[in-house]
Simulated assay, not measured.
Amino acid sequence: MLSDKVRQLVTYDARLRMVVADRPKLRALVERAAADGAIDHASQRALGVALLALGEYEPAAVHLRRAVELAGSPGEVIAARADLADLYRHGGDLPGSELICRMTLELARAQAPELAALPLLRLGWTLAEQGRPDEARQALAEAQQFGEGAEAGLFVDVEGLVVPLPPSVAALLGAEPEWDHDHDGASGSLARAGSYFVRRGPEAVAEHARLVWLREWAGVAEVVAFEGDVLVTADTGVETLADDPGAGAAMGRALRELHAVPVTDCPFDGRLDVLLAQARRNVVEGRVDADDFDDDNLGHTPMQVYERLLAERPDQEDLVVAHGDFTPSNVMANGVLIDLARLGVADRYRDLAIALRDLSGDFGPEAVAAFLSAYGLDAPDEAKLAYYRLIDELF
């Protein structure tokens, strides 16, 4: 089988990254399999792993997602998603890898407990790389209880797996800063180190580009350092609007100003074609937690939500420069905007739907009325509000 041949050519180095013993031979295997047109789950997974080992992450992801779609059992889904977690870890997206591991672990515990070691091992590794050794040891210790399936010499000193900070960031924060993941506005890959906020991975690269571009038109956090895939921003010195009774009017003013930025000048694309493609990837990779859906969507699977999005897609988009995650916790009391990795040209309802949902739930109808007045919208399109709230279920 192709998977056996790939396994013979791939091993792990001291940092638990895939390495290839014979690259020309593995490349020949990949090309032969592609030419043969193998489309079963096992072949797609083997191709994905081979391309991952060769460092070709985008085509590897395509094959691994296809392996998930072709899976005939929960065990096959778990195995392919564990490989996807490896892919994201290799590519530097540690928060993405962690999310896939945790969601895959839930699936394993519910439907195939004997395979829980697969996501647990990878969860331990990605936590270790993020500098969270206690959590990493806990995950690896649990994986080790599963015996043979978790044995491959892959239990190492987790302290040695921490990904070092780039030189300019280490000079600012110290080589081993003390991280705080419990802070105002905490989300995703964001951590605090002293008076700075630090983000790492593809999300950091995306946010840096948007911070640099947007500061001509709007208040944004100051970039203190950026090197490689690590972004450091300064504390704005004020609180977010998450607990502010005046959040409605303040958010309305901030969003009106953001949506007035010229669309033609924005190089970032957040339109429906892009959103729906990412939504499907999130569903296939197991990044979506259906238990966290809004009340009116509980009981539906992520794929059912995705299919509704295709069926109910609006005919037109009213394009503006949209924040992409416009919540009270992402707007500071002084109007500064944070958490901008999703900013791009999109329908204005991408922001309106999330803002109105959160304001209604957190502050009530008066805040909603104040927001609409400040933004300058008398009668929102309820169908589009519902559609863009539905999209958010998959992110």
Rank of each mutant, 00 (worst) to 15 (best):
E159V: 00
L165V: 03
R199F: 00
P164Q: 09
S187T: 13
P202A: 13
E151M: 13
G160D: 07
P166A: 10
A152T: 11
W179D: 10
V158N: 12
G185C: 06
G153M: 09
A204V: 05
L173D: 06
V169H: 08
P177F: 06
H181Q: 13
G174L: 14
G174H: 10
L190F: 05
G149P: 11
S187P: 03
F155S: 09
V163A: 14
L154C: 13
R192M: 04
G174S: 06
A204Y: 03
L165S: 06
G185V: 02
Y196V: 10
A175I: 05
P167F: 02
D157R: 04
G201F: 01
V158Y: 03
S189G: 14
E203A: 15
H181F: 12
V162H: 05
A150T: 03
D157L: 01
L154Q: 15
P177I: 03
D180W: 00
D182W: 04
Y196F: 13
G194C: 12
A193T: 00
A193E: 01
G188W: 02
L190W: 01
G185I: 00
A150F: 12
A171R: 14
V158G: 11
F155R: 12
V156W: 00
D184S: 15
L173S: 00
F155A: 07
D180L: 07
V205M: 03
G194H: 05
L154H: 09
G188Y: 02
R199C: 02
D157Y: 02
L161F: 04
G149Y: 00
E203H: 07
G149L: 14
V169E: 11
R199G: 01
F155W: 04
A206G: 09
D180F: 02
R192L: 08
L165C: 05
R192G: 01
Y196H: 15
P166F: 02
E178L: 10
G201D: 03
P177R: 07
G174R: 12
V162I: 13
P164I: 10
S189P: 12
D184V: 12
P177H: 09
P166E: 05
E203F: 06
S187D: 14
A175F: 00
D182P: 00
A191Y: 02
P177N: 07
H181C: 09
E151V: 14
A152K: 13
G153A: 14
A150E: 09
H181N: 07
R199T: 13
S187G: 05
F155N: 03
P166L: 03
E203I: 02
L172P: 06
Y196S: 13
Y196N: 05
E203D: 08
D180E: 06
G188S: 15
A150Q: 08
